[in-house]
Design a protein around this nucleic acid. Structure first.
Length: 520
DNA sequence: CAGTGAGCGAGCTTCCGCTTGACTT
């Protein structure tokens, strides 16, 4: 018998099924050793040597694993293929001290061929990766456990600061200040309602003023009612003549399948779930074997699932919606480690009607299913007609849109209505039905929603899939930030703490601190 | 002699990232 250790018990069950009776698969339930919580646990005078303990929660796990390894011939460490996973494998050895052969194996997807292949090519623990994790851990501890007491002394008991949470607060505080100092700027737009001469009936369409004396008019160029009125006066006796018609076929491609961050964002905007709620629902779906792992930064899809998607698309929507060969996506997220697949249904034949846990589970599953299927559907083709219209020394433009082929839009993000223009030709004379001026004001930047903040953190490489939702919670629990109408805004204490940290520890709350840490 | 207050020491809070139950509301 061989013992295989993975991080997640749900994953373990699946893998055990693939490996058969010669293998027993157990879970470590995440990390099994960590720095002590009560003390710093870092010897700053001795090359920052970390002191590790086995947390109470992990003691039972370790006891079980020790017992099982005694009966096993060999130990396979199948923790995740990333920095934390490598460290967990290392700590498992340190905590168990197995007297059996140890093999480290890795895979990017939980499919039978991937697992069987992994078992065939074991390797040693990569100590460089382990050391990178230890450095990350020690640094986070030093930052968190040195800065937090500084705040207890200067501001209030129980406050906290850290590499990730303090930057999150900073983003929210600085956005709020931008909004506060924002001065709205007035500007005007001019819109003509036109129709084709002979016959005048029907075929009306709108055109926007875009040019003057052959030059583009800046959006903010017309600053007052007086300026706008002057344009209207100038155009009093103008003839409106079609000067140019351009038709372009544009392709619109589907979004990639979900990662943790995009799932949290989309479930927030489309379903109104908080990131915490989304993760809880996704966890349930995962534990029931309905979706792949939900804490991931990878856009990869197993070849088997690609094929399955193609079949579903051909069957449900017709083969012209299927792609001749699979579409691959590459992650743009800084520091992505891609230990898992993207988030997708494990069996694409299961549709949301069959999910009978709760209404919310059904909705989230439906979103994941559609996003996955759409990502392998053919792109949409949209004909865009741009009409330019000359009116004395001014120029107007109107854009028409016609969907030639809906492709993935049939399933995801819906169809926008066609914008119809009458049949026009260069030189056509148009009659003016109405000429209007509209007042506008520039808008301040928007406050962060949970999703927008997660997107910003991910873009900067700050935080990981497992910490986005907890980070949003902690900045609220500390009283730094509150949510109003779904938007995050700083409270006084959040602003005060931020200013103090920026003043005394500018390099640590710097937006690029994490990026530099990763590089170095 | 009761009440007040200064002074002192002990004990508590805290990070990020990996994972779920076992708790409480």
């Amino acid at each position: 018998m061989n013992l295989v250790i993975v991080e997640s018990p749900a994953k373990g069950k699946t893998i055990e099924k693939y490996l058969g009776k010669d293998y027993k698969v157990l879970a470590s339930f995440g990390h099994v050793r960590d720095l002590p919580t009560k003390t710093l646990g870092v010897d700053t005078k001795n090359n920052f040597k970390p002191e590790y303990v086995i947390p109470i929660k992990a003691r039972k796990t370790i006891a079980t694993l020790k017992k099982e390894i005694a009966n096993a011939d060999a130990l396979f460490l199948a923790t995740d293929y990333d920095r934390e996973g490598e460290a967990i494998a290392f700590h498992l050895i340190e905590a168990i001290k197995p007297k059996k052969p140890i093999k480290r194996i890795t895979f990017h997807e939980i499919t039978e061929p991937a697992i069987k292949e992994a078992i065939k090519c074991p390797r040693d623990i990569d100590m460089n990766l382990v050391d990178a994790q230890q450095a990350r851990r020690v640094l986070d501890r030093l930052v968190g456990y040195k800065l937090s007491p500084f705040l207890w002394k200067k501001v209030a008991q129980g406050l906290s600061a850290g590499r990730v949470q303090s930057v999150a607060v900073r983003l929210i505080v600085e956005r709020e200040r931008e909004i506060q100092k924002f001065k709205p700027e007035e500007y005007w737009s001019i819109e003509a309602l036109l129709s084709k001469d002979n016959p005048p009936a029907g075929g009306q369409f709108k055109a926007i003023l875009t040019e003057k004396d052959g030059k583009k008019i800046d959006k903010l160029a017309i600053k007052s009612d007086k300026d706008a009125q002057k344009v209207l006066d100038d155009l009093k006796n103008a003839d409106y003549i079609v000067s140019e018609i351009k038709i372009e076929t544009k392709k619109k491609y589907p979004s990639p399948p979900f990662t943790t961050s995009t799932l949290q964002m989309e479930a927030g905007t489309k379903l109104g779930f908080t990131s915490k709620q989304t993760m809880k629902l996704a966890q349930d779906l995962y534990e029931d074997g309905l979706i792949t792992y939900m804490r991931t930064d990878s856009l990869n899809i197993s070849p088997m699932a690609m094929k399955a998607a193609r079949n579903v698309i051909s069957e449900k929507y017709g083969s012209r919606y299927a792609l001749p060969s699979p579409r691959f996506y590459k992650t743009k997220a800084k520091g992505a480690q891609e230990a898992h697949e993207a988030i997708r249904p494990t069996d694409l034949a299961v549709v949301s009607d069959q999910i009978r846990i709760s209404d919310k589970h059904t909705k989230l599953y439906d979103l994941i299913w559609k996003r996955m299927i759409a990502s392998q559907m053919k792109e949409a083709e949209i004909d865009e007609t741009i009409v330019k219209i000359a009116a004395s020394n001014y120029g107007f433009a109107s854009t028409g849109q016609k969907i030639q082929f809906d492709g993935f839009l049939k399933l995801y993000n819906g169809l926008k209505k066609d914008i119809e223009l009458p049949n026009l030709a260069k030189g056509n004379k148009l009659s003016l039905e109405k000429l209007d001026k509209f007042q506008h004001f520039t808008e301040p930047p928007a406050r962060f929603t949970e999703g927008a903040l997660i997107k910003e953190l991910e873009k900067r490489g700050i935080g990981r899939p497992s910490t986005y939702a907890p980070t949003i919670s902690v900045v609220q629990d500390r009283g730094y930030v509150e949510k109003a109408q779904g938007k995050l805004l700083p409270k006084d204490i959040g602003m005060a703490v931020n200013d103090l940290l920026v003043e005394h520890f500018p390099n640590i709350v710097d937006y690029d601190f994490t990026a530099r840490l990763e590089e170095e």
